[in-house]
Design a protein around this nucleic acid. Structure first.
Lengths: 166, 166
DNA sequence: TTTTGATACTTTAGATATCGATATTTTCAT
DNA sequence: ATGAAAATATCGATATCTAAAGTATCAAAA
């Protein structure tokens, strides 16, 4: 007894099951791409600049916000917990790449900023980092990259909404 | 090398810079999507099943390979280092969810398998997990998801090639 | 056989990560 | 005002995670 192929005739239950499976495959592929790229970048940051990815990421956030950022802001933007940001910041302070300044508006908070050396150091790494990313995405043409960019915007808002409602 | 459609007024340098910037944005958006989804799944696995994401991932690999997998295979498929797999496996063995069996072919290797309890436990979690993923991708229609799936295939091979050459 | 190199896994050290608890400060409703 | 609730950051415990070094085994050549 052979099963009919899932097509226009599939009932609700069959369709639901099949959608589950395809969504799962889609998610696993998304994850695989990210891990592939992230592992590569992590490895090169280490071998070529002797820095870890989390430290680089934190510095990247600060470079984009020259006025500095509160710990909580960093936590939100890096999508990691506050305790984690505390640890990474501690390391970068030890290395002299960032500083904690007291916030004049809120005595609970710190403002984290790049030091001049941190900024200089980051700029050099960022230049190489951009090249790596260009290479990693180089197998796609401009139209495909644009399409991917738009689809990921959809995914981001879809996931944000679903995650928000919980 | 294929021709790229570029606005007539941009010179080479401008184009290069702008491509760098757009690729970087594309990568950051990819990363943001993955983190968003991953954090949500991690959180729900913890609150609803009291399990960590890495443990769930390892079990998922084993469920797909009922004959069991060697540590090295797990390492490759999960895209993490061997030492990491050792630790996660240790935890799961302690919890009675997986077992290490000696490989009959190679005394250096183990075959890791789900225990009956591990399989039972995983199936229950996987069902919920799939629902979460369906919800997270629910804001995209079928065509968009298909497109995303295909574009990610391109990205995967592009990144794999670039990462391979180094 | 013995050596040699590669492979499979573990162990170690260091740096991230999370979660829950805590201390301090701010905000806000009364 | 003032007390409760919320916000900010840190700390301690535990769990990942990587890179590198170490152990055991395999496979093939000398």
């Amino acid at each position: 007894m052979s099963k009919k192929s899932v097509s226009a005739t599939s009932d609700t239950e069959t369709r639901a099951t099949s959608e589950h499976a395809t969504d799962l495959r889609l998610w696993l592929r998304t994850l695989a791409c990210t891990n592939l790229i992230e592992n590569h970048i992590r490895s090169r940051l280490r071998t070529e600049f002797d820095i870890t990815l989390p430290r680089f990421d934190l510095m990247a956030q600060l470079e984009r916000s020259p006025q500095g950022l509160k710990m909580g802001e960093l936590s939100k933007r890096m999508m990691v917990t506050g305790g984690n940001v505390t640890g990474i910041t501690d390391q970068l302070v030890t290395e002299g790449l960032v500083v904690r300044e007291d916030s004049p508006k809120d005595r609970r908070a710190y403002i984290v900023k790049l030091t001049p050396e941190g900024r200089r150091s980051f700029r050099k790494m960022a230049e190489a980092h951009e090249k790596w990313v260009v290479d990693l995405f180089g197998g796609m043409d401009e139209k495909q990259r644009d399409q991917l960019y738009e689809l990921l915007a959809l995914l981001k808002s879809s996931a944000a909404q679903a995650a928000g409602k919980k």
